[in-house]
């Protein structure tokens, strides 16, 4: 059972941060969907609900997504999904159900960098930054390799780019975790290909648009190895990796899958 000793609804990020660093086990709570299943004591659970982080702001250059925005907000945001041909919506669409998506937060998910994450795979392909309270702004593709630090992820920024984007996944049941997921984007003649739930967390590689499929797959194999777990064997995942990457590439290049 999760035991929370003190609940802090921070009025400001500074207050939240100060509370966070007071104790090694203090914790920011996002959607709480994963945290809730843990069996431990949290001296101080810090809620960011009052920090105005729950909206998607759009300006000329970017979408600025507050950390407390839910998956369902992402799924139903028209302008954002228009830019990426619905790829973000597609990546979160089948995560459990609408109630779950109304609670799961982008901040909690991206901070945690889960191996099974679908949204991480999708966002990695976009021109995307993460804003942390202390660390400041950093590209998502770098952030995924950072250690888990005592900091507050406040925003995810998606830069507006002209792009083609695609997301594919295979699930055992329609709302299960992905057995494997793959996403891609074509931005400025550059292909960005990402494979997640291998079951390791997503990685992204950038490739020249002209590269043929065999070259792409070769690079994917090197950068994104697969392993076995209860959902699938290594061998099946490796097969799916090729199949889904090919699908994604075909969608990006406008060829029939």
């Amino acid at each position: 059972m999760l035991k929370i000793q003190k609940y802090v609804r921070a009025e400001s990020l500074e207050e939240a941060y100060q509370e966070l660093i007071k104790n090694r086990n203090n914790q920011i709570i996002g959607g709480m969907l994963w945290l809730k299943m843990e069996d431990r004591v949290i001296p101080s659970a810090i809620d960011l609900s009052k920090c105005q982080l729950d909206s998607i702001e759009e300006n000329e250059n970017e979408f600025k997504i507050g950390a407390m925005c839910t998956f369902y907000q992402l799924e139903t945001h028209e302008a954002l999904n228009q830019m990426c041909q619905g790829m973000i919506a597609k990546s979160v669409r089948d995560i459990v159900g609408v109630q779950f998506k109304n609670m799961a937060t982008i901040g909690g998910s991206i901070y945690s960098r889960f191996g099974f994450s679908d949204i991480l795979t999708a966002l990695l392909c976009l021109d995307c930054d993460v804003v942390c309270y202390k660390k400041g702004q950093i590209a998502l593709k770098e952030y995924i390799h950072e250690p888990y630090e005592k900091d507050i992820l406040t925003h995810v920024i998606i830069h507006k780019r002209k792009m083609k984007a695609a997301f594919e996944c295979v699930r055992r049941s329609s709302t299960d975790f992905s057995v494997l997921n793959a996403a891609g984007a074509l931005i400025d003649h550059q292909l960005r290909i990402c494979v997640g739930a291998r079951p390791h967390k997503a990685e992204m590689i950038e490739i020249e648009e002209q590269c043929d499929l065999q070259d792409i797959l070769k690079q994917v194999h090197e950068a994104m190895p697969c392993e076995s777990n209860m959902r699938a064997s290594k061998e099946y995942r490796e097969h799916l990796r090729d199949v889904l990457v090919e699908k994604v590439v075909n969608e990006l290049k406008g060829e029939k899958a």
Partner: peptide, 18 residues
């Protein structure tokens, strides 16, 4: 499932404090 400010949520996964 209950509605919080008209949105469906999972009451088993939300702190009452929230």
């Amino acid at each position: 499932t209950v509605l919080m400010d008209d949105h469906p949520i999972l009451s088993c996964s939300m702190l009452a404090a929230r």
